[in-house]
Amino acid sequence: MNGERPIDGTLAPSDEEVLSAYLFDDLDPGERDRMQRRLARDGALRAQEQRLAPLVRQLEHLSQDAWAFVATQPGADAAPSDDLTTTRAPAPRRRWWHGRLSVRPALAAMTAVALLAIGVGVGVLLSRTPGVSGATVVLRALPGEPTSAVARGRLTPDGHIVLTISHLPASRPGTYYEAWLMTSTTRLVPVAAFRSGTDGRARLDVPLPAAAAAYRYIDISLQRTGAGTAHSHDSVLRGNT
């Protein structure tokens, strides 16, 4: 227990641990099945689960701005001696855009524009035919991104995009990927949301919601569930249309 005090006396600590893993979707399928069978016969455990599960959903829907606010408040990340301040583990990694968008919107915007420009010159390998129809596209990671993911595909004459993606990190709980047609950080339209499996592969074949020729890039971003429908500014792949 490491000095942790239970605050709810209705459950044993071991039950609270397994309930926590269940609520935060951190059980494997077998464990989850066992937990669900247990919930069916254990009234106290079920009552706690029913009480707390809606709160988990509310937290999942909290916007990134709201989380950024929480992270910047006095006392955030303060921790007792057995916690973050003394651990040899690295400090929580923050993605490059966290905080900057809310605190320094101008800087974030300039950074995004710069990344777009870099994407034209370095991050994108493109083999294309004139016009959009039938164009072959290759999406690669932006400079500085550690992923070796790549997406190859084409824009079909009937207005679809067909993409085969490989080496994409598997979607973590609470995250998903979104494909976009994009010209700038303020001119973009979502194309499709998808998740990547443990094999790192995904395939998209979706009709485009707008004239692809009107946009310069195809972008794939890592999004957080419940963080709103706007682009997260966390692009993992990008290529020209």
């Binding site: 942790e4 609270e16 935060f24 973590r172």
Partner: peptide, 28 residues
């Protein structure tokens, strides 16, 4: 968990806090 998208195990690895303690703190 919700802002950085980490699993409980990843949080334990990232912070050095035992996994059981991570689970307890989250449910508390």
């Amino acid at each position: 968990r919700f802002y950085d998208g980490l699993s409980q195990r990843e949080i334990a690895e990232r912070t050095g806090v035992p996994l059981g303690t991570v689970k307890m703190r989250m449910v508390h």
